[in-house]
């Protein structure tokens, strides 16, 4: 009876996810194995193409660099935020939430204004005489990385503030009063306790960067194609749906593999878990 009540309440949402998410996505992946050219042909085609390998490698590179920078910036910022007095902490959290709730198009667009040929940064650099001619900053890998870091730092900060807040002040003071230098307290007390949070943040940022579309499209364009923009181009410009499905399958496999791997690692590295 209870089982029936539970299922009947959960069934509309369950059916919605199964019918409109699980089945379509599985179908997309299955079709890549059912091409007339043979079961693995699309994958041989993908990895056989120098251009596609470059795109995959570039995507991994951009995502890794973004994740590392976001971890660094996010961790320090979250630490300071978590140790700030109450009123300041609220203001800083608001300041981090606001960009997070502002859409990805708006946030990428802001960097187009800054990094453009006639943009603010070039204007400032030429104006102060640091460079003679405006530099090409838009449509470079650097532009994509800067905008991605901008996109994901708030997420990282908010993920880590909660984790760092839960580290009691007493623990840090105990470490100091027992003679540990601030650096030792940091590396031997704070960092290990923050590892699970850092892993969650890293997963969020890496998978987010790896499957991003709008930011690489606007700041990287054709010359900095990544998996997301390549998939869109294959699906909607050249209408090669087998190729688009292959890219989709690779994205799903890599995303899920990273999530599983990292959550397992988070469990093992959690010093609080006995």
């Amino acid at each position: 009876m209870k089982r029936f009540a539970g299922w009947s309440l959960a069934s509309p949402a369950t059916l919605a996810v199964v019918i409109f998410l699980v089945l379509p996505v599985v179908a997309t992946i299955i079709t890549t194995f059912l091409t007339p050219a043979g079961p693995l042909a699309p994958y041989i085609g993908f990895f056989g193409s120098g251009f596609r390998r470059t795109v995959l490698w570039r995507t991994i590179q951009v995502s890794l660099i973004t994740t590392v920078i976001a971890l660094f910036i996010g961790f320090i910022t979250a630490y300071v935020v978590s140790r700030s007095p109450g009123w300041l902490k609220s203001i800083l959290i608001i300041a981090a939430v606001f960009p997070l709730l502002t859409g990805v198009v708006v946030r990428s667009f802001a960097w187009m204004i800054i990094l453009g040929k006639n943009g603010i940064l070039n204007g400032m650099l030429v104006g102060t005489g640091i460079i003679g001619e405006p530099m090409t900053m838009l449509y470079t890998q650097g532009a994509v990385i800067v905008a991605m870091v901008y996109l994901f730092v708030p997420l990282m900060v908010l993920t880590l503030v909660g984790v760092l807040e839960s580290i009691p002040d007493d623990l840090i003071q105990a470490s100091a009063s027992l003679g540990a230098k601030p650096m030792a307290t940091f590396t031997q007390v704070i960092l290990p306790l923050a590892v699970p949070g850092l892993i969650v943040g890293a997963v969020l940022v890496f998978t987010g960067s790896f499957t991003a579309y709008a930011t690489p499209q606007l700041l990287g364009g054709e010359s900095q194609m990544v998996m997301g923009t390549l998939m869109y181009q294959q699906a909607m410009v050249t209408f090669d749906w087998v190729s688009a499905s292959t890219i989709a399958a690779i994205m799903v496999v890599i995303t899920i593999a990273i999530v599983l791997l990292m959550t397992r690692m988070a469990k093992r590295l959690n010093p609080m878990a006995v």
Binding site: V25, T211, A248, M251, V252
Partner: peptide
Amino acid sequence: PELVLGFS
């Protein structure tokens, strides 16, 4: 990934 969901 959202892109995969949209495309599928």
